[in-house]
Nucleic acid binder design. Structure first.
Lengths: 222, 222
DNA sequence: CCGGCCAGTAACTAAACAGTTACTTGATGA
DNA sequence: TCATCAAGTAACTGTTTAGTTACTGGCCGG
């Protein structure tokens, strides 16, 4: 196509921008940029060009590493689930008393949601589409059982000790904790607007943290 | 452009399709179609053409009645809020005992969320955009106070009667009820997938309904 | 009975979009 | 030392999209 012997434009370009040539870093940069873009705009609102720009690369690389927009989104979602479940494994709710174990799980979940609103946003997007991509995922089948197993053991110990009611169900307890955290964080903008109180205020956040622990324990106490 | 004297195409068309010429009905049809389209696809995923087609009309009418896509979305959102707050006004939670009043509000809220998942979906979309459109709304300023006023009265009566704890806060109680309903319905698809249990199953729905009432009352009982 | 007005239609436009192509660059091992 | 291949770039393409334009036809007051 060229063959004119003129190499100037290309040479000048390689001086302007430092060529990375670091596949691992490029891949990671794309994944992080995509996480933010999908979390901020949802599947329909996210722009492939915007992801490439945020990652400091271009579309070609994005398609090179991840195939297409949908597969990139699935990678982002899987990574987000791996993130919370990995962090969850590091806390051992069975180490102290049953009440302290439940309180610890509630605190962890609330704080993780608060620290990672992009995870909640991705969940919202995925549910809007009725778990269309999550259901296709092969990576995320065995990931969640650990949580329920450990929670079941703590509840059983509490029941035997007579501090928890017999009807306390592990899934219900987890859903209760998750509900109270998820709704407060993910709906803070409409709630703050219609009730005229800033839910992101530190005082309100601390109060809600205590509230979650109180509600969870009150609902299973014997 | 034509002037050829041929009027056939237009005349034939008016025979094919009955001309409605009913502004009220057209407007309502667009609003309903838009509600479904926005609820199913979010702001970024909703298509103006799809709304026009669902409404049995065309884009011109949509822009004629509502200005543009964003204003149409705002109308949809306002209508959805008016819907739940209007229904809420018809229940009088102060008519019976404080406990029964709280249980009634919890049941109403849960059942309304279950019957109107499109409302939850619109809330999700609006929060993704940090209440960008809701904050602009002039219609929805005084709409929500009624709920808090009535709830405050019921809680105060319960405290005086010694059945509720003094620290029970009206906003917290409402947020608790809303959290438990919202999360279960709006996140049912990812939850059913990762925990391998169909949350839309009637048995599970009924159990969660009882659970919401139980948790709410347990958290404020003296 | 007619002129303007409002409901309604279909075809159009400019921009934005996901995905592709044709190319350059640099490192590596034979 | 040079052929090869993966990493990277930028310009392009066909399609989709929100929004517009130019029109039709029925109805109603004068």
């Amino acid at each position: 196509m060229d063959g004119s012997g003129e190499k100037k434009p290309a040479k000048r370009r390689s001086q302007d921008r430092v060529l990375q040539r670091d596949p691992e870093r490029t891949r990671a940069a794309i994944l992080e940029a995509a996480t933010r873009e999908f979390a901020e705009n949802g599947m329909g609102g996210a722009r492939v060009d915007a992801i490439a720009e945020r990652a400091g690369t271009n579309k070609r690389m994005l398609y090179h590493y991840f195939g297409d927009k949908e597969q990139l989104y699935l990678h982002v979602l899987e990574e987000a689930y791996v993130g919370i479940r990995t962090a969850e494994r590091e806390l051992h709710i069975g180490d102290r008393s049953p009440e302290e174990g439940i309180a610890e799980l509630a605190l962890f979940t609330w704080r993780y949601f608060h620290k990672h609103p992009e995870f909640l946003s991705l969940l919202g997007t995925e549910n809007l589409h009725r778990a269309r991509w999550l259901r296709q995922s092969v990576r995320l089948k065995e990931l969640h059982s650990h949580l329920i197993v450990e929670l079941t053991e703590v509840l059983d110990r509490g029941k035997k000790a007579g501090v928890f009611i017999e009807s306390a169900d592990p899934l219900n307890v987890y859903l209760t904790i998750a509900s109270l955290g998820y709704f407060y964080i993910s709906n803070q903008y409409t709630l703050s607007t219609i009730f005229g109180r800033d839910l992101a205020d530190t005082g309100n956040l601390d109060a809600w943290e205590r509230h979650i622990v109180h509600v969870t324990l009150a609902s299973i106490k014997a």
